[in-house]
Design a protein around this nucleic acid. Sequence first.
DNA 1: GCCAACGTTGGC
DNA 2: GCCAACGTTGGC
Length: 133
Amino acid sequence: MQYWLIKSEPSTWSWQQQLAAPQKTTHWNGVNNALALRHMRLMKKGDLAFFYHSNDGKCIVGIAEITGEFENEPNTKSGWVFVKAKDPLKQSVTLAQIKANPKLKDMVLVNNSRLSVQPVAREEWDEINRMAQ
DNA sequence: GCCAACGTTGGC
DNA sequence: GCCAACGTTGGC
């Protein structure tokens, strides 16, 4: 099982909208970056992902589950996976909190802030869940 | 295959 | 709104 972080601008697609979707499940599309797409291709059913609000929010707001693996969008390099809202975090974890935590200094979110689909290490996953209590 | 010019993301 | 840090495009 692998852990991920997926980003969305809440004005485009928010955690609240994800929760309100039928069965809480949607396509996760609109990704064009090659590295982000490579990460999406590695996603397996049952993997978990932090749902991060970029720009307006700058915080992790919930945990999503990958419910369907990568499908190519015909005639493009892009595609989608299926994502389901699993659990909200008790408390959002902000980018500022993450940056202030020395245990999280190697997080991709800190070092490559523009990457919209990123792997999260197990220890980072656990640490952020602790911070969300 | 290099690299300049341009476009985009996202934190501030 | 600005701009740094990346990515991408396309001429050569």
